[in-house]
């Protein structure tokens, strides 16, 4: 496969839909609402918008420029940029490998709970049901369990097969077509969910809790870090996804115009999620005679504890359940597809073999590992630790290091020039300044949170568990990335831009 035959999206709309599909995921629905609530409510909107404009959108432009200029997956793009940078590309790929392994599990849970919603299968105690009956969570202190849970494994294998089927079809017929179908369905379902939530008794109480500003919080640096963190994790930036997708754009594509649409669309969706989720939590608090602070949750607690409880009590709860868990499933599926595509694209570039072959060469072993690690009774603590160490430390570390070398190697000017060659919205000094400042913020996020977890531990898990599946896993990703960058490229296809390769 030569570069001239690299697959492309059929046009800008196809790329934008796929990129929004990747960006809009679990984080938009279950992370943004609670992060906003915890960090000053309405006042949080100010640091959030500042973070979107100064970090999110500038980093999106940067990723697009790297992928589009070098027309390869993350490792090939970095290698073409500077042959010493290839390790960063593989590090990003390795982060996606780990995220893909556990993201599939949550996707499987969401799909299963969509089905459960029809009958409210969780009964009167959704927390007990989720922990003891559905996941049958075991004690990690007794060691990693290989007692597998059928109810988890079945949907887990199913979501892997669906995603691999889509990916095997290719960029346009698979990724683009699936996004073109799933994203409109997701948006319609979610709008219906939000409107339904707004009509629930007590919805205003939830919205008051979410949007009433606590201005004092603006002087707290941790609130600003939370805003940058939310934007950073929500937009799928700096870990290979946007580099890979941009490499499938046609050569004369408008990078910044598309980037602005993707950045604002992602935030629009999560703002809508905040309104829908807190309107629903307001209803739940009212129904139980509690304060919103007593029922507000984020992440797994919101989706699998709070929402089932709410569905039990809401009028037409089954419909709300199907809409909520269906939205979660579709949002997670398009993101999951993009995560696996980073790996497929990288391996395809390196080995120069057919996409369908690479898809199953990569996907089937990953599916097996995913089932072994997360399909057992210790899958939940495993997921929790890997999410913290790979999705937080892994992404922030690879972003910080790769941005630092790009800045230090004075490559921002080259990328800015590439963006301006084809884009409607031109970038210059302010864009470069935003990248430099964001690099510093990432360093602060990495070292402050790293020091905290290093000294205090994480969630009371045993040291051997944290050291093996947390720190050990994070370090192993870098080592494997370095080793992969030492492997020879098949048919030496690395030189694309004259004067860029030594």
């Amino acid at each position: 496969m030569s570069n001239s035959t690299r697959e492309t999206f059929s046009g800008r709309k196809a790329f934008i839909m796929a990129a929004i599909g990747s960006a809009v995921g679990l984080g938009n629905i279950w992370r943004f609402p609670y992060t906003t609530y915890e960090n000053g409510g309405g006042a949080f909107i100010i640091p959030y918008i500042v973070a979107l404009l100064t970090a999110g959108i500038p980093l999106l432009f940067l990723d697009y420029a790297i992928g589009h200029r070098h027309r390869g997956g993350a490792p090939l793009s970095y290698r073409r940029f500077n042959k010493h940078f290839e390790t960063f590309g593989w590090w990003q790929v390795m982060v996606n490998v780990i995220i893909g392994l556990y993201y599939a599990v949550v996707l499987g849970w969401a799909a299963t709970y969509t089905y459960f919603s029809f009958t409210a299968a969780w009964g009167n105690d959704p927390v007990q049901f989720f922990i003891n009956e559905y996941l049958r969570v075991g004690d990690i202190k007794q060691g990693v369990s290989f007692e597998f849970v059928g109810m988890v494994i079945g949907p887990l294998i199913a979501v892997w097969l669906v995603a691999l089927g889509v990916l095997a079809l290719g960029v346009q017929k698979g990724i683009s077509k699936s996004s073109n179908i799933l994203m409109p369905v997701l948006v319609v379902m979610f709008i219906v969910l939000v409107v339904s939530s707004l009509f629930l008794p007590g919805a205003a109480k939830g919205l008051n809790a979410l949007f009433t500003p606590d201005w004092d919080k603006l002087s707290d640096p941790s609130v600003w870090i939370a805003a940058y963190g939310q934007i950073f994790f929500s937009l799928s930036i700096c870990f290979g996804i946007m580099i890979t997708y941009a490499s499938y754009l046609k050569k004369d594509s408008d990078l910044t115009g598309s980037g602005l649409v993707v950045g604002f669309a992602n935030s629009s969706f999560e703002l809508l999620a905040g309104i829908g989720v807190f309107a629903a939590l307001g209803f739940m608090a009212t129904a139980q005679g509690q304060e919103v602070s007593e029922v507000a949750k984020g992440g797994i607690g919101l989706a699998f504890f709070a929402f089932p409880t709410l569905i039990n009590e809401a009028p037409f709860g089954e419909i709300i359940g199907v809409l909520f868990f269906g939205s979660l499933t579709f949002a997670a599926l398009t993101s999951f597809i993009s995560v696996i595509e980073v790996i497929i694209s990288a391996v395809q570039d390196k080995l120069r073999i057919r996409r369908s072959k690479v898809t199953f060469l990569v996907g089937l072993p990953m599916m097996a590992v995913s089932v072994i690690l997360f399909g057992s009774t210790t899958g939940l603590p495993m997921l929790d630790v890997m999410d913290k160490f790979v999705n937080y430390f892994g992404i922030v570390a690879v972003a910080f290091v790769s941005l630092m070398v790009i800045v230090a190697d004075e490559k921002l000017g080259v990328l800015g020039q590439h963006i301006n060659e084809t884009s409607s919205f031109k970038v210059g000094f302010v864009w470069r300044l935003c990248i430099v400042v964001t690099t510093g913020i990432l360093a602060f996020m990495l070292f402050s949170e790293g020091a905290k977890v290093f000294t205090e531990g994480y969630e009371g898990y045993p040291n051997w568990f944290i050291n093996t599946f947390g720190w050990g896993m994070s370090i192993m990703l870098v080592v494997v990335a370095f080793l992969l960058s030492r492997l020879k490229w098949k048919n030496e296809v690395i030189t694309e831009r004259k004067g860029e390769q030594s």
């Binding site: 800008r12 309405g42 918008i49 949007f211 115009g257 598309s258 604002f264 935030s267 629009s268």
Partner: peptide, 30 residues
């Protein structure tokens, strides 16, 4: 809903959804 919550919700919607609409409208023809 209290006034400050309504104001902040409207501001957030106006800036973020407004940004999305403007960025779509400003996209040059392919």
């Amino acid at each position: 809903m209290n006034t400050s919550a309504i104001v902040m919700m409207v501001i957030a919607l106006a800036i973020i959804w407004g940004g999305l609409i403007i960025s779509i409208v400003k996209l040059p023809k392919e």
